[in-house]
Design a binder for these strands. Structure first.
Lengths: 346, 346
DNA sequence: GACAGCGATGTGAACGTGCACATCCGGATC
DNA sequence: GATCCGGATGTGCACGTTCACATCGCTGTC
């Protein structure tokens, strides 16, 4: 009934060999799908494994092959929807390829904290690294610590020391801004993310390009921290000025906080102010008003990151990386600019 | 300038020993903080490590000690706020204890999918397992596959084969329901989670207890899938009946979808219907209306899970596990029952 | 001054696997 | 029938670390 007592050590390749009456090397061959092995022998070995409940010892294998079959993930803000979804996708994809995933969070974004997280991952002897929701600083530390394994960034960084998925955040942000401009808005404020985040910088750039293209005046962007709470705070400050008719927030959480502040101040969205977010988190389509935003396929991003990384790990030729272009999703938080701008209400 | 070429293998303990002119065992002692080592010797060894950029090989260590310093996390729905936050907390806590974390997602919740995920983790030779957002089935599979390592559940399961944090979901749900009752609501619907989820079952139980205590009539609960989209769907169905004045949703996402549907149907929250959620996700306080919900400290839950698990891994005596009782947070989505219930509006 | 005791260090084996190489066997080739 | 070849299998070692045990010298005790 119950499995054989695990007295002492787990069964090894040699225990299996003894039971199957072959050499340990034959067992090893069965494990690694070596071609030249008689079907009959293979069967006997598999049988023995089954009986002994044999599980290969990854540590031993790693030791001799110096391949850990593990990739690392360096994630910041891993509790938010986007990164969390990408991480999950990375795990799924890695598992499909027989790889394990080891995650380290960047709770502390100081260089020391970053170095610490990287060091932690390196101890695990990872073969490659995926960097999620990356800050500029992370790549500086990575470059400085010469980790000796390939790494992939989920965002284009412009650096040459690693590959990056090119998710065209700039275009996404530009489209969001152009949408507002198309609705007649001319006084648009950007609620940006922290500028040491590559994504935040790209989104800001897209915003600026669109503003520039349309030859509109520039409101100084507000630098936020991605949180809904900050969005609320920024909104409360903004309503004092009311010299704008639309806000493009760098992510949905901030947009939602923003709308909250506007609501509290008696401003109507989208009647008085239009709001656009970024990411299309699952609740975006259900908040009031439903949020116009830019959709990103985080799952696909995670999958591609793994494909790209493993390709590099195995030293194959460079694979094609097509751009992922985020898609504008128009919902209820944007509307044509009011005849009299909100500023008049002052 | 650049570090020494990594020609061939990485430096080993023996390379360090040679450079420091000691035996390899002395180096090992320095690594493991062995007490009897002369400070001067230690210094020399550390110096040598520094020069060689030595990093201990975890595979070799694991092989000989049969301790992997890795714990596994089996997570479902890891992209949502609660699980993601707990996972992050688990990683932080594990790292503090020198442990690595290996995560496997439960994309597929069939027994085969579950067994597959567990098998994947076991290949990694994990020392313990944390099960997040657990479904009943997971524990059945775990019991059946006799994984041989301790595991900890983030929710009380009533099973005896593992430890569980006791987060008192029942009390949390009861308080939420009592809050509605206290406001005069007598027709309360519960939008539950999938009943094979332990949390969903506990929240439903708390709801039923509160209804029972107050001797109210029972509306058959609606079984949802945790998503905001389902909340919207359920809300659309519910508005056809309008035989209720309040809804207690098993999580915030569903509550937000629900409110969306009510809004679309012209029902006012909380004027016509009160809504309570569960979890207190970051946007809960910013949606319109702000959502009354039950706060859970996911971070603390993750931390405690690691403490509990490592304690068990190290075979220490059982540690005290105090209950974590979720806290009701009253916001704008609940109000005293209207003089004429929504049903009259029919 | 002999001996126990302890601090500081060294020696060899073992962990479980894969690799390089050796061996054995049957069939094809001449 | 001697030779070669390749499929199927076995033998020993190496990977980098820790563990058990041994060694050496110094101090304190009687």
């Amino acid at each position: 009934m119950s499995p054989p007592q695990d007295r002492g050590r787990a069964p090894s390749i040699r225990d299996v060999a003894r039971l199957a009456e072959v050499s340990h090397q034959t067992v090893s061959r069965v494990l690694n799908d070596h071609p030249s092995i008689r079907p009959e022998t293979r069967e006997r070995v598999l049988q023995a494994m089954e009986t002994l409940q044999y599980r290969p010892n990854r540590a031993a294998r790693t030791l001799v092959t110096s391949r850990s079959n593990t990739i690392g993930v360096l994630a910041a803000l891993s509790t938010t929807y986007g990164p969390a979804t990408s991480i999950a996708a990375i795990e799924d994809a890695a598992r499909e390829h027989g790889y394990h995933v080891n995650t380290a969070n960047l709770a502390d974004t100081s260089p020391a904290g970053i170095a610490d997280a990287i060091e932690h991952l390196m101890l695990q002897a990872i073969e490659g690294l995926v960097v999620i929701a990356p800050q500029v600083r992370v790549f500086e530390v990575l470059a400085a610590s010469s980790i000796g394994v390939p790494f992939v960034s989920l965002q284009s960084t412009g650096r040459r020391d690693h590959l990056a998925l090119s998710v065209d955040q700039v275009t996404g942000a530009r489209r969001a801004t152009q949408h507002l401009i198309g609705l007649g808005h001319r006084e648009i404020v950007h609620l940006a993310g922290p500028q040491d985040w590559i994504e935040a910088e790209a989104r800001m750039r897209g915003f600026l390009e669109a503003i520039d293209d349309a030859e509109l005046g520039l409101h100084p962007p507000i630098l936020g921290d991605w949180t809904a709470d900050f969005g609320y705070y920024a909104g409360s400050e903004l309503v004092r000025r009311r010299d704008f008719t639309a806000v493009f927030a760098a992510n949905d959480e901030m947009a939602i906080g923003l709308m909250h502040a506007f609501r509290d101040a008696g401003l109507d969205v989208p009647g008085d102010v239009s709001v656009v977010g970024f990411d299309d988190i699952p609740v975006a389509k259900h908040v009031a008003p439903t949020l116009t935003t830019v959709y990103q396929d985080f799952h696909e991003i995670g999958r591609r990151a793994v494909a790209l990384l493993l390709n590099q790990v195995h030293g194959a030729e460079r694979i094609e990386v097509e751009d992922i272009v985020p898609r504008l999703v128009v919902r209820g938080s944007t509307a044509p600019v009011a005849v009299r701008p909100a500023s008049v209400a002052r």
